[in-house]
Amino acid sequence: MRNLVRIAPGALELGRPLPWNVYDADGNVLLRQGYVIQTNSQLEQLFERGRFEPRKIERPHEEIFEDARERNPFADYPDLLHALETTLNAITEGDPSAQKQLMGLSRMIERTCSEAPDASLALVHLYSIGPNILEQTLFYAILSQFVARQFGLEEKRISVLTAAALTANLALVPVADQLNASNKLLTDDQRNVIQKHPQRSIQALQAAGINNKLMNTIIAQHHEQADGSGYPQGLSGSDIRPEAEILALSERYVAMITKRAYRARMNVADARRLIATLGDGKFRPAIPRALLQVLGDYPPGILVRLDNNEVGVVTSRPLRARGPFVQAIFGPRGNRYNGTFERDTSLLEFNIRALEEPEIMPSMDFSRIWGFRT
């Protein structure tokens, strides 16, 4: 029997894919992960009737996550976010198991990215409209994984970078969502919190018994810039670790494609063009180049219009002379398909014509579209 609880007001938002399945009181699925709530009346009905299955993680994360299951980033998404929240809380509280939890979560993310790379990248884009600080942090870790491998870092350094990406903004967690939701100028106190968050995050890690020299350096430097204009020390050039630059660029890309109260989100094409300019003084040129190679022209999870006028979601990056592949969701006349149809965009009739940026994302069954068993 499922342990189902009511959905708390504020847990769901209009225009944003559901992060988990929604059930009725008897345990029947009402809506699957990826469904997008379109109206306030739908939202009210879900708060009245809907239930979800809360996550209970009682053992260290590496024991829970290191199993033989097929890695499905969409099904794992709630678990990853819950594990991240409990890990950051453990660090803040000085829990003796904090380091074990952080390493277990880092390995889980590494394994997920390795076994399901396109779906892992799709998570970043499907949930990028208005992510909270925990979601953003998870996205930083995912992108850092891919960029680091493309850049050529060895595995041991990538593992440390993953842990750094998960904890570099620990000191910002209590205020980040509030800052992102505000369209007012920062106060002096808020600027002070932002300027000092790398060192305060390191202090929290050390107090919890986590004291890796490389990890501390990555966190301390992830807001430095190659031209010396960063903070807190104004480092420049090769004084900045490449791992710190990879994390910084991952954070910047997520910020570009995320909607904030004070600005609209940037589409992927514009974000790519801006990234291409960052190798001119802000970063080592090879790092923006690595991110662009990871994303491709049309990264997984974005919507595109094809030459036959269908609209679909990109599910994979190009492979040799083929792709990227798209699952068509809407027909040429705007009718919603009953199911989806795979399109190889290297074929003339299915060439990608343009990016699609609807005001509200269409509902999708993510696991089914990416071919995972449900």
Rank of each mutant, 00 (worst) to 15 (best):
residue 133 I to E: 00
residue 120 S to G: 02
residue 119 A to V: 09
residue 67 D to Y: 02
residue 132 N to I: 01
residue 74 F to Q: 05
residue 60 P to N: 10
residue 85 E to Y: 09
residue 76 D to Y: 06
residue 89 N to S: 13
residue 78 P to C: 03
residue 113 C to T: 05
residue 113 C to Q: 06
residue 87 T to Y: 05
residue 79 D to E: 02
residue 122 A to D: 02
residue 141 A to C: 01
residue 69 R to I: 08
residue 92 T to A: 10
residue 72 N to H: 08
residue 60 P to G: 02
residue 132 N to H: 12
residue 82 H to E: 15
residue 98 A to D: 02
residue 76 D to M: 13
residue 134 L to M: 12
residue 119 A to S: 15
residue 78 P to E: 01
residue 77 Y to N: 04
residue 98 A to I: 05
residue 111 R to I: 01
residue 99 Q to T: 00
residue 111 R to G: 08
residue 114 S to A: 15
residue 127 Y to D: 00
residue 141 A to W: 09
residue 63 E to T: 02
residue 135 E to G: 08
residue 103 M to D: 12
residue 89 N to D: 14
residue 93 E to K: 15
residue 89 N to T: 12
residue 119 A to Q: 07
residue 116 A to P: 01
residue 126 L to G: 01
residue 133 I to Y: 03
residue 89 N to E: 10
residue 65 F to E: 00
residue 135 E to A: 15
residue 102 L to Y: 11
residue 113 C to Y: 10
residue 124 V to Q: 04
residue 89 N to I: 12
residue 70 E to T: 12
residue 96 P to Q: 14
residue 136 Q to H: 15
residue 99 Q to R: 13
residue 74 F to R: 09
residue 136 Q to S: 03
residue 123 L to A: 07
residue 137 T to R: 10
residue 136 Q to R: 13
residue 116 A to K: 12
residue 141 A to V: 09
residue 73 P to F: 13
residue 134 L to E: 00
residue 139 F to E: 03
residue 94 G to S: 13
residue 85 E to A: 13
residue 100 K to E: 11
residue 67 D to T: 11
residue 130 G to F: 01
residue 116 A to N: 03
residue 101 Q to S: 08
residue 83 A to R: 14
residue 60 P to Q: 12
residue 64 I to S: 03
residue 92 T to M: 07
residue 131 P to A: 13
residue 64 I to W: 10
residue 92 T to W: 07
residue 69 R to A: 14
residue 115 E to Q: 15
residue 86 T to E: 14
residue 65 F to C: 06
residue 59 R to E: 00
